[in-house]
Design a binder for these strands. Structure first.
Length: 116
DNA sequence: GTCTTGACGTTTA
DNA sequence: CTAAACGCCAAGA
């Protein structure tokens, strides 16, 4: 194995997509949490970058991924700003404007649920 | 090849 | 308490 500390066999991009697909129904997570799960807690921007590329990949519930405060930052990237809020409401999550209500209650931590 | 921008988060003033 | 700067890494111009 030539890979030494590269425990991330897949690229950061693919790992983010994997985690995004693993987000349970009715749950939400944050970019930082995913980055932390990947071992790059301070590289949260990379998660956003990966999600931007995720547009070409179907089956990526990006609407379940928000910033640390539960703010729908990338709502504009869904085509329709109401789209993301509508999807979250469909899962039983209250969304007012761009802010998720009870975000902490719906929060899903990959590092815990995936027990890495 | 260099500079700017970007779906964020943490730290310091 | 709020506001601003820094850090992180990659892609686009």
């Amino acid at each position: 194995m030539i890979q030494k500390e590269s425990e991330k066999n897949k690229d950061f991009f693919e790992m983010v997509l994997e985690v995004a697909k693993l987000i349970p129904h009715g749950r939400v997570t944050s970019y930082g949490s995913i980055a932390l799960y990947l071992g790059a807690k301070r590289s949260s921007r990379m998660v956003g970058w990966a999600m931007n590329s995720s547009h070409k990949v179907p089956g990526i519930p990006a609407h379940r991924v928000v910033n640390r405060v539960g703010l729908l930052t990338g709502k504009m990237h869904f085509g329709d700003p109401e789209q993301i809020a509508n999807l979250l409401r469909a899962e039983g999550i209250d969304v007012i404007g761009d802010q998720i209500q009870n975000f902490q209650e719906h929060f899903w931590n990959p590092s815990e649920e995936l027990h890495l």
